[in-house]
Design a protein around this nucleic acid. Structure first.
Lengths: 195, 195
DNA sequence: GTCTATAAAGTGATAGAC
DNA sequence: GTCTATCACTTTATAGAC
């Protein structure tokens, strides 16, 4: 169902994703996307009925994967083993196909998370994931550690500068560092708890 | 030198910072800023010669503080105590006056870090700070931990949802969680190192 | 499925009056 | 120090030919 026209729709998605990430969603015009593809703006409107529908189309896959992961996580018992498994699976989806590009787009366009429905959907799933990771410990420290663990997976893409490092090594590195954070969830904090 | 006109310049800065953070830099027009202040666009151009000069003016203070911190850090011996002290001082500047608002603006407008000179300056200082935090350990894991420690300070502003939590408590929480990351820098990683 | 042409509105920025 | 008026340009989006 996706190859009927020679893949023009997919080429639009690829170019849009790249430009949105590099320059920002608002700063990228449809004219610019069309020029890169050597088509006119009107051709874009045949494939997508608006600019933000391009984003919506980009997000569908990712949303399904996150929903599946959240649903699975909720069937598991709360505990360190589950937290580890959830984050490992999250890292798997983040290092698969076009997924990392889509998430990098959102990292670079945080305001889109508020202004577009597709952005709000992704934001909602990230919050649910963080909540599931902190399951059984509702302290502020646990919330922070859960958020940082997720961020470890994301930031391994850009925070680590090592020549010739592979995706698999980035993934393992992120999980290794995140593991210390996950292990600390559920333990009593050193000082007096805030909540 | 900043109060000659009744503070119109400062009011512009405050409104611009708020709108840029909420909606994004590109998505916020000068008309919108002017309307909120009940002045015309032309009045804005009396105080700032362009849109991005508003951002530049916002950033000056922050840049000075970061430069001072980086310079100080470089006079200190590499080690855990220094890492702790650097991050604690960083947190101090982040919880002072308008600083957190300025950094929230950049978090929400990552693409500005690439497109505007002021953004590139801030980005550069963040990278220098991360490097200084990882001093003495150039492993990929150390880079990731240093980045996460800085992010812990930033994210304590939005990742932690606790009713009535104070700034001082957020600061302490961030440093507590970050401390585990800083302590792990300089230690040999569990698996084989990538670099 | 892609084109030309254009509408309708908004944008950053400037000139010059007061 | 703020105004009115305007310039030159870009934007998203649509109508209709091919």
């Amino acid at each position: 169902m996706r190859e009927s026209t020679g893949g023009t729709r997919e080429r639009i998605q690829a170019v849009a994703l790249e430009l949105f990430t590099e320059q920002g969603y608002e700063a990228t015009s449809l004219r610019e996307i069309a020029e890169r593809l050597n088509v006119t703006k009107a051709a874009l409107y045949y494939h997508f009925k608006s600019k933000d529908e391009i984003v919506t189309s980009l997000v569908e896959d990712r949303l399904d994967r996150m929903d599946a992961l959240i649903a699975w996580a909720r069937t598991q018992p709360a505990g360190l083993d589950t937290r580890r498994a959830v984050l490992a699976r999250y890292a798997d989806t983040m290092f698969t196909g076009a997924q990392p590009s889509v998430m990098r787009f959102f990292e670079q366009n945080q305001t889109v998370l508020k202004s577009l429905a597709a952005g709000r959907d992704i934001r909602d799933r990230m919050l649910q994931l963080a909540a599931v990771l902190a399951q059984g410990d509702d302290s502020p420290a646990a919330q922070l550690r859960a958020a940082l663990a997720l961020f470890a997976v994301h930031s391994s893409w850009f925070a680590v500068r090592a020549p010739g490092i592979t995706d698999a090594e980035r993934r393992r590195l992120a999980l290794e560092v995140a593991d210390e954070l996950l292990a600390a969830i559920g333990r009593a904090p050193a000082g007096d708890a805030t909540a």
